[in-house]
Simulated assay, not measured.
Amino acid sequence: MPGSTAVRRALARARPRPVAYALVLAVAAGLLTLAGPGAGTAEAVSVCQGRPARTVSFATGELRLYRTRHYACALVLAKRPGAPRPMKVTLQPRGGRAAAVSGRWGRQAGPVTVHALNRCVRATATVSGRSAATGWILC
């Protein structure tokens, strides 16, 4: 076949070189080492924008509040992630309507975000029947 030699040459050039492969593995191992312990663990990563503003712990979970210049965001994390259980988180700006998320989750409920430019907010969280609430905060 007239074109088969060119195809074979192209395939030979496309194969990874053993030295390059070893170099890629070494770089990947180095990056994992630099990332430190816990980099591969399943830690709760915030899905809210902004800086952490307040954390309220209670018997079965933790209510986390975040704040940007214009918005407030809340989420609730179960202390012991596992089987789905009833969870709810609400966030209300002063003078505005409360935003809420409820359902059955195993780890986290939320996020809930409200517009809170120059306004206080209050939040509540429930995990398995136990709850926590804040007064008017972040004023």
Results as ranks from 00 to 15, higher is better:
Pro2Ile: 00
Pro2Phe: 06
Gly3Asp: 12
Ser4Phe: 15
Ala6Val: 10
Arg8Met: 09
Ala10Ser: 09
Pro16His: 05
Tyr21Leu: 11
Tyr21Phe: 10
Leu25Phe: 01
Ala26Asp: 11
Ala26Lys: 10
Leu31Lys: 07
Leu31Phe: 14
Ala35Pro: 00
Gly36Met: 10
Gly38Pro: 09
Ala39Tyr: 03
Gly40Ile: 12
Gly40Phe: 13
Thr41Trp: 14
Thr41Tyr: 13
Ala44Glu: 01
Val45Met: 04
Val47Lys: 04
Val47Ser: 12
Gln49Pro: 02
Gln49Met: 07
Arg51Cys: 08
Pro52Trp: 00
Ala53Lys: 05
Arg54Glu: 09
Thr55Trp: 04
Val56Asp: 13
Ser57Phe: 07
Phe58Ala: 02
Ala59Thr: 15
Ala59Gln: 12
Ala59Val: 11
Thr60His: 13
Gly61Val: 07
Glu62Arg: 15
Leu65Tyr: 06
Leu65Lys: 03
Tyr66Glu: 11
Thr68Cys: 08
Arg69Glu: 13
His70Glu: 13
Ala74Asp: 08
Ala78Asp: 08
Ala83Lys: 08
Leu91Cys: 08
Gln92Arg: 15
Gln92His: 08
Pro93Phe: 05
Arg94Gly: 05
Arg97Gln: 02
Arg97Asp: 02
Ala99Asn: 12
Ala100Phe: 04
Ala100Gly: 08
Ala100Glu: 14
Val101Phe: 05
Val101His: 02
Ser102Asp: 12
Ser102Leu: 12
Ser102Ile: 09
Gly106Asp: 04
Gln108Gly: 00
Gly110Trp: 06
Pro111Glu: 01
Ala116Val: 06
Ala116Ile: 05
Ala116Met: 02
Leu117Lys: 11
Arg119Gln: 12
Val121Pro: 03
Thr124Met: 04
Thr126Phe: 03
Val127Gly: 02
Ser128Gln: 09
Gly129His: 07
Ser131Leu: 13
Ala132Trp: 08
Ala133Leu: 05
Ala133Cys: 05
Gly135Ser: 06
Trp136Arg: 11
Trp136Pro: 07
Trp136Gln: 04
Trp136Ile: 03
